[in-house]
Simulated assay, not measured.
Amino acid sequence: MDTVKTEFVVLDERFARCNGDEWMRRLHTGCRWTEGPVYFPAGRYLVFSDIPNDRTMRWDETTGHVGVFRQPSGYANGHTRDRAGRLVSCEQGRRRITRTEHDGTVTVLAERYRGHRLNSPNDVVERSDGSIWFTDPSYGIDSDYEGYRAESEIGACHVYRVDPTTGRTHIAADDFERPNGLAFSVDETRLYVADTQQSPSHIRVFDLADDGTLTGGEIFGTCDSGAFDGLRVDTAGRVWAAAHDGLHCFASDGTRIGKLKVPEICSNLTFGGPRRNELFITASSSVYSLRVNINGAGY
């Protein structure tokens, strides 16, 4: 395991107290494109995707060992952990959302909308009411690199919600070019969604009603380095976004207040550890971590 000097860039005084370890650890390298980090506190391990190699990996916190969790993985991309501690995955290759049960069996949560196959689910989060929200761009069907080349049966890229009672899949937002990372605000009254393909790439914010209805959708923040990918929110309501030069941090009013520089292109992030103050970052061929003085919100 090697280390990289940590560089927090303060752009606004509100970011001045956001810091952490002096050195960032590189937990693993040698992948083709890492994505979808999710931490399981009960087992003290991190699951992440190596998409083009069609495998999901597992890093063990107690030993530092990295091994294959699942291969083939259906070209899995984003993951989350539900309130019951189960793994929920976006399988780009199989064009579906799945849940790995405690006994290891796999349950399909979503794979079609009105009879048509999804494009290639990308990132996923669970709301506290049990609803599953995911984005469905076309990256997994655009080529054979991280999925299987195919024509879109839906003809567009949407944000979806899986109803926790009926299990039905509904379109939550239908005006995106390439929806990607998504995250709820701390109180779950807002939903942030990154649109990677826009120029410039940006994050939009929606007001979220108790019944799952979205309104608004204004631009929350724009990217000044490549494109936005995965998103997470901390307990102070700050939005953290993966970008080409590292992680960008936005205050809840949409001001970019700082950056955490990373030596590779960042794809995603998650807060882990028993107190959610261990920051895990997937970036190009590697996975990084550092202890920070902030805490991630929710799951």
Rank of each mutant, 00 (worst) to 15 (best):
F8R: 08
V10H: 11
L11K: 08
F15L: 11
C18G: 00
D21M: 08
E22G: 15
R25V: 12
R26Q: 12
R26W: 05
T29M: 12
T34S: 11
E35Y: 10
F40E: 10
R44Q: 15
R44T: 00
L46R: 10
D50Y: 14
D50T: 08
P52Y: 05
D54E: 13
D54V: 12
W59V: 08
E61I: 03
T62V: 14
H65I: 13
G67Q: 13
Q71V: 13
Q71R: 14
Q71H: 14
P72A: 11
R81S: 01
R83F: 15
R83L: 15
L87A: 00
L87M: 09
E91W: 02
Q92E: 14
G93R: 07
R95N: 05
I97F: 05
T105G: 13
V106W: 04
V108G: 10
A110D: 02
A110K: 02
R112I: 09
Y113R: 11
G115H: 01
S120I: 06
N122E: 07
D123T: 10
E126Y: 09
R127Y: 13
R127V: 10
S131E: 05
S131D: 06
T135S: 15
P137E: 07
P137C: 10
P137Y: 08
S143Q: 15
D144E: 14
Y145N: 08
Y145E: 14
E146C: 15
G147N: 04
E153P: 04
E153T: 11
E153Q: 09
V159C: 09
Y160T: 03
V162Q: 01
P164R: 05
T169A: 04
H170K: 10
A173I: 06
E177L: 13
P179R: 06
P179Y: 07
P179S: 12
N180V: 15
L182V: 09
T189P: 00
R190H: 07
L191W: 03
V193G: 02
V193D: 10
Q198T: 15
Q198S: 13
H202W: 09
D210K: 12
D210I: 14
D211Q: 01
T213W: 00
L214R: 08
T215R: 12
G216T: 14
G217I: 02
F220C: 01
D224G: 09
D224I: 04
G226V: 02
A227V: 13
G230Q: 01
L231P: 01
L231G: 03
V233T: 09
V233I: 13
D234F: 02
D234K: 01
A236N: 11
A236W: 03
R238T: 03
R238G: 07
V239H: 03
A241I: 12
A241W: 05
A243S: 15
H244A: 14
L247P: 03
D253C: 00
R256V: 04
I257C: 12
I257V: 09
G258L: 01
K259Y: 00
K259G: 00
L260H: 07
P263M: 00
E264P: 04
C266F: 05
N268F: 03
F271Q: 00
G273K: 10
P274D: 13
L279M: 14
F280Y: 15
S284C: 10
S285W: 13
S285P: 04
S286Y: 03
V287E: 01
V287M: 04
L290W: 05
N293S: 10
G296L: 10
A297L: 01
Y299M: 14
